[in-house]
Every structure is written in C-alpha cells, then in structure tokens.
Amino acid sequence: MAPIPSSQKKPLGNVMVIGGCGFLGHHIVAQLVESYNCKVSVIDIRTVRNRRDGVQYFDGDITSMESLLPIFQKTKPDVVIHTASPQLHGGSKELYRKVNVDGTRCVIEACQETNVKALVYTSSASVIHDNASDLINADERWPIIPAKSQTEYYSQTKAEAELLVLSANRSLTNPSLLTISIRPAGIFGEGDMQCLPPIMAVYANNQTDFQLGDNTNLFDFTYVGNVAHAHCLASLALLTTSTMKIKPLDTEKVDGEAFFITNDQPVYFWDFARAIWKACGSEKGTEHVWEISQDVGLMIGGILEWGMWVVGRAPKLTRRQVKYSCMIRYYDCGKAKRRLGYRPLTGLPEAIEQSVKFILEEQRVEREKKGQ
C-alpha cells in the first residue's frame, strides 16, 4: 500500500496498538503511519521486533492493570486497537484464558479509566464455527458457538473476549466508549508464522504429490494487509460515530457490532496451496496428485496421533488437519463493505506472490546467518 500524502490523510488522533510488534499488529502500525494523520504508540510484551521510526514502544503486560494503566495515562489514546493474543496452536488453556479473556477485561477497564473514545478488538471468524460443519457464505447473523459445543478452546476464549468488548459499548457507566469487533478469516502474509510456512515446507520437502479430499471445498484465506486496513477503517468509523449528536440507524451503525473480514475471494483449498507452491518455484500441475478421501485421511490421522502419542512426538498429520483440508469454510464480508467502506486492497494472487517472496528472503537471510 503506497503512502498517502499528508494533506489527504484522515485524522485518528492518538492511536494505541496493543500487540503492535506481532504479525497483524505491525501491519496495522505500518498503515497508520503511512496512511493516517495520527500519533502511534505500541504496547507489547516485548517490543524488540517489527519496530518503526516515529512510533512510541512500551513493554507491558495486558493482564496487569499495574502495567497497563500507567502507559494509557502517559499516551492518552483516543483509539485503542487490541490485537494481542497467543497463537491458535501450541498455547495452553491457562494462557488463552489469561490473555484473551482476562487481558481483554484489563484493556477495557484501562480504556474506561482514561476516556478512550474507540476500542477495536481483533476477534476471529472461528467464533461461529464448531470446526466440523461446513460454513457456506456465513455472515454476522450466525450465532456464536456456545462453550459446551466449541471444540477449540482458543475460539471459545476469543468469543468470550468479543462479548466483553461489545458489552462495553456505550455502557451505562462509560457511555462515551465505543467498541467494535473485527473477525478475520484465515490470515496470511508477510511475517506469518502459522499459515504459509507449513505449506511452503511441504514444497521444500517435496511432499506435494497428494491431497486430502477432492478439492471442491471453498475456503477463505485473507491477506494481512487487508485485515489491517479493516482495523483502520473501523477506528475511523468509531471516531466519526463518537462526534455524532444522534445515534445512527441500526442498518448503519458500527459501534457495538462485529464484522467478518475476508479477501472476498474464497478459493478451493488445494488451489491455494498450489498457488503458494508455484510462487515457491513449482512447475507441476495436478496430474501427479494422489487423492486421499476424507475417511481414509481421518483413519490415517487417528493412527498417527495414537502412535506419536505413545512415543511422545507430534504427528505430521492429525484428524483436525484432515477436517480443515476437506471442509467448506467461507464468509460474507458484505456488512463490512456496506458499513465500514471495506474493500480488499490486495487481491489473492498478488498477496500470495509478495508474501511468499518475503518469507523466502527471510529464510535465505537466516541461512546465511547460520553459515549454511
């Protein structure tokens, strides 16, 4: 995204990005610096990476009011964008609850105590998914999966945190705080550690000769730059709303609302993987591919899970991975388009190309550092 001339930048005042050194957070910081008229500060548990000139950085723990509140009092943010969260995989239940729920509760309290006008929360599209059923063009009318039916504890805690944030909108005790929840679907991009690197590793290990399922399942993958753009638009929409003397119509309101954000380009699951492999240098088509049915994949995944559990190692294929590879999962981002003015800035082919190029360069530099 090219920087916007200063005379054309829209004002956002003082903006605090929580988790601003992380994957999504640092992309949000970059867009704020390049495209908006604002003063940007960042809170992260450690602010040693992904730093930008002209931004204030603070090491802080969002689960501690003693850590959080003094930073808010010093920076006096008008807008807080809360992206901090453990990764989807590898965290404990205790960590997910502490950061996603307890940490978000502290962020809300700090916003209320320091007269923040707008709080933008990064939720997840997974809050409406049971991780088994197909989602076909799902929108915000779909209910959040109740805790007893949610198989991903991460998604359960993101849903709880979202409810806290949206309940804080125009509360009786703090009516001036406006809140919004952004639900990205399948984020990937530069700095990505969860989506692209494992798919790229499949190509690097020459393991592209099979697929799970028949590749007729559409799936949403969303470029991180577009998700960052949506957060900035949400911030601007909340600030605009805060200056209105009357509440907007229900069909127009943004505060107290959740919004799905996608690339608006659902793609067949294995087509996405093959586009990544092509960007890595693959010239293969699909004639060599061995198709493994979902039922067979689930059986193999179950055997590997049990066998690796016995020897204390992680399996290379799990039943969860099989289900995700075969399910339909895409969303309707029409509400964000209508109310936030959202449109993806970067299409899927371009996003894949530049993201893979970035990661390959990072890997090359890392190899050189190790003298390989």
Rank of each mutant, 00 (worst) to 15 (best):
Q8C: 00
P11D: 01
L12N: 14
I18F: 09
G19Y: 12
F23I: 00
A30E: 13
S35A: 05
C38L: 12
D44N: 14
V48R: 15
N50L: 08
R51L: 12
F58G: 09
L69W: 01
L69D: 02
F72I: 00
K74Y: 01
K76S: 12
H82K: 07
A84S: 13
S85F: 04
P86H: 14
H89V: 10
H89W: 10
E94F: 04
L95D: 13
V99N: 09
D102M: 08
G103F: 05
R105K: 12
R105C: 08
E113K: 09
T114Q: 03
V116Q: 06
Y121M: 02
Y121L: 00
S123V: 06
A125M: 05
S126D: 13
N131D: 05
K148V: 00
T151F: 03
T157F: 09
K158C: 00
E160Y: 01
L163C: 06
N169S: 02
R170E: 12
P175R: 09
S176Q: 14
L177I: 03
I187W: 08
P197E: 01
A204Y: 12
F210Y: 14
G213K: 12
G213S: 12
D214C: 11
D220I: 06
F221Q: 06
F221H: 01
H231V: 07
L238E: 09
T241D: 12
K245L: 02
L249M: 11
K253H: 15
G256N: 12
F260D: 03
T262A: 09
Q265R: 11
F269N: 15
W270M: 15
A275M: 14
I276M: 15
K278D: 10
K284F: 01
V289P: 07
D295C: 03
L298R: 04
L298S: 09
T318E: 03
R320V: 01
Q321R: 10
K323E: 11
I328E: 15
G341L: 11
G341F: 14
R343E: 10
S355Y: 07
E362M: 07
Q363K: 14
V365Y: 15
E368F: 05
K369E: 05
